[in-house]
Amino acid sequence: MPVYFFWGADEFRMKKAVKTLCDRNLDADWSSFNYEKIPPEQSDAVMQGLNQAMTPPFGMGKRVVWLADTSVCQRCSAALLAELERTLPNIPDSSILLFTSGNKPDGRLKSTKLLKKHADIREFATIPPWKIEQIEHQVYQVAKDVGLQLTPAAASLLAEAIGADTRRLYNELEKLKTYWVEPKVALPPDAVTDLVATSTQSSLQLAAALRQGQTDRALTLITELLERNEPALRIVATLVGQFRTWLWVKLMTDSGERDTRTIAQAADVGNPKRIYFLQKEIRNVSLPQLKSALKLLLALEYELKRGAPETVTLHTKVMQLADCFRPI
């Protein structure tokens, strides 16, 4: 298929996919003639891209036309839609037309429906920090890409240390591959502990401290997270996700549900076996406490998005959140 649409917030993975696509289709000796990246600020960018894609390549290899940061799936004029309808089905096999965007395509638009019909659409979304199983699965995938075997314990340590940061994950795995001289033997956890800087401060640890009513520890963690330049809204997103998961697990458990698969589905937990540990975490927490915490977190997110000062606002809300769970 000569048309591709890549989208998502994980720019690093997307750029690697773009490079792979170019390397596979461009002839190195003729790439300067057959490769063109068209930025979004260029006038009539999509029209130019369509015209270029219809032009035969010069010399060997294929022609690659990249429409970067396109908004064609967020807004599309009638004239542009008509041109897309005319051109996309007729892109020659000697060309590759690539659209990329950080935004999710609007499924209601005719341009999106058209691309779904004629393009290979790939998502490069950042995995939420609380989805541990998905992060560990990504660790295994990237390790396979770089040619490194991991023990389950090593993969778990990497997931905890790096989270969903794919750029750092690739860098750390390449470093571990250079260090590990036995490629046929799975990398042990000791190597990860010795070579990968593992931060003891994470947003998930902050969530645990808040759930336990540990105000001092929570304030220390939020300060250290901010000092490491962790974006405030990302911290809040992790907390919202974790407390929402706890809330659903508590709600389903208190309602008498015993099937872990049903609870996992309601709480959006990929591995039903994890429900036991989540239930254990919130055994001494009440449903009203979790509801109050989530309400405070959503208020915090609203204030930050309206431009409230990050440090003061976070510290204030952290104290209020920890107070929700303080033993009476």
Rank of each mutant, 00 (worst) to 15 (best):
N284F: 14
A218Y: 00
D268R: 15
R234F: 04
N284A: 14
Q201A: 10
L287N: 04
A266L: 10
V240K: 02
A299W: 09
P288N: 08
G270E: 14
A293F: 09
L210A: 09
K273T: 14
K295L: 12
S255Y: 14
L233W: 07
A209R: 09
G307R: 08
A308M: 05
T200W: 00
T245M: 10
L221H: 03
Q212M: 09
A308R: 09
R234W: 01
T223W: 05
K291G: 00
D259K: 12
S202I: 03
T223D: 10
L225T: 04
D254I: 07
T262M: 15
L247V: 13
I263N: 00
V240H: 08
R306F: 11
P309A: 08
K295P: 00
A264Q: 05
T245N: 05
R261G: 05
K305M: 04
H315V: 13
I263L: 04
Y276S: 13
I235M: 01
L210R: 08
R261L: 14
E310M: 01
T215G: 02
A197R: 12
L247C: 09
K295F: 13
L239I: 04
N271M: 12
P231C: 04
E257R: 15
S203A: 10
V318D: 01
V269G: 03
R244W: 02
M252Y: 12
V269S: 03
T200D: 10
L219S: 06
H315G: 10
L314V: 06
R261P: 03
P309Q: 02
G270Y: 14
R261V: 14
L226D: 04
I222W: 01
R217M: 11
K291Q: 05
R258S: 14
I282P: 06
V269Y: 07
E227D: 15
Q201K: 11
L298Y: 13
L247S: 07
Q212D: 10
T316K: 12
T223A: 13
R258H: 15
P309M: 02
V312W: 10
I275P: 09
L314W: 03
D254L: 02
I275K: 06
R306Y: 09
R244L: 09
R274N: 03
N284S: 13
A208V: 06
E303C: 03
V269Q: 10
M252L: 13
A266R: 13
L219C: 12
L239S: 00
N284D: 14
T198S: 10
Q242W: 00
T223C: 04
L251A: 03
A197L: 14
Y276K: 15
A266F: 12
L210S: 04
N229A: 11
Q265E: 11
L314Y: 05
A299N: 07
A299V: 09
L251T: 13
G270V: 15
P272D: 07
M319W: 13
L239D: 00
G213L: 08
L290F: 11
Q201H: 05
E230P: 00
S203F: 01
L247K: 02
L298S: 06
D216W: 07
G241R: 03
T316S: 09
P288Q: 05
E224G: 10
N271Q: 12
L300K: 03
T215H: 01
T260A: 11
T200F: 02
L206T: 05
L278M: 14
T238Y: 06
E303S: 13
E257I: 15
T245W: 05
A308K: 07
L278S: 08
Q320T: 15
Q279V: 14
W246I: 07
T311S: 08
L251S: 04
N284T: 15
A209Y: 02
A232V: 01
